[in-house]
């Protein structure tokens, strides 16, 4: 009995404050969590909306798409359908990721309604070298422009070539071949498997 008493004597403050702090955190979380989730959705919509200008809103699919990742567990991708005011499908957008030069790169990729040509990509987060690799993040820069209108199929990276020509050859950023390759690899990992899966579900032809 005295041991129990000793325990409480020593630790009552810890117990009381744990409960107090726990309550405080629960309250803050309850108050701000909806806003945090809203922020994330808005960020995705902003990036995807810039690429699919006709899209009015983005709707989730009934079931997320699973694609092979080369690891035991497949990646789960939340593919969203961009619809215009009349409810017509104008494009698809999804979040994808892969390793870049110095950290993970997260991209939002947009594809047109028939899933035949890319509508471009936007960078959600990356930590590439300033002045070199971070050129992948410049919206409307020469690197990002090469993807707008490129075929939704396997892409190749070349070190020199015609950057203005829109085809399946992507010209690397000079001095940042690894970052450029990372973006191309991420797209190649995701685009074709998602296309196949959507075909299988009969959502596209």
């Amino acid at each position: 009995m005295s041991k129990v008493k000793y325990f409480f004597e020593q630790s009552w403050l810890l117990l009381v404050s744990s409960i107090f702090f726990g309550g405080l955190l629960a309250l803050t979380n309850a108050a701000w969590q909806p806003r945090i989730q809203q922020n994330e959705i808005e960020k995705f919509n902003r990036l995807a909306g810039a690429m699919l200008r006709e899209a009015d809103s983005f709707l989730s699919l009934d079931e997320p798409v699973e694609i092979a990742s080369g690891k035991p567990r497949p990646y789960t991708v939340e593919v969203k359908r961009g619809v215009d005011a009349g409810g017509r499908t104008v494009g698809w957008a999804f979040l994808c990721q892969g390793s870049g030069f110095s950290d993970k790169i997260k991209l939002v990729v947009a594809v047109d309604g028939s899933f035949e040509t890319l509508a471009g990509f936007g960078v959600l987060s990356s930590n590439e070298t300033p002045g070199f690799g971070d050129k992948i993040t410049i919206a409307g820069g020469f690197f990002q422009r090469q993807f707008v209108g490129a075929p939704a199929a396997a892409l190749d990276l070349v070190k020199s070539g015609e950057a203005e020509a829109i085809d399946d050859e992507i010209v690397a950023i000079s001095g940042a071949t690894v970052s450029s390759q990372a973006v191309v690899t991420i797209l190649n990992t995701y685009v074709v498997p998602i296309q196949e899966e959507l075909k299988k579900r009969g959502l596209i032809e």
């Binding site: 404050s17 702090f21 955190l25 803050t28 979380n29 701000w32 945090i36 922020n39």
Partner: peptide, 18 residues
């Protein structure tokens, strides 16, 4: 540490939200 961790979580949630 308990006190500090609580307030840091609050600051983190605040930044995430606003």
């Amino acid at each position: 540490t308990l006190t500090i961790a609580t307030f840091v979580t609050i600051a983190d949630l605040f930044l995430k939200a606003f």
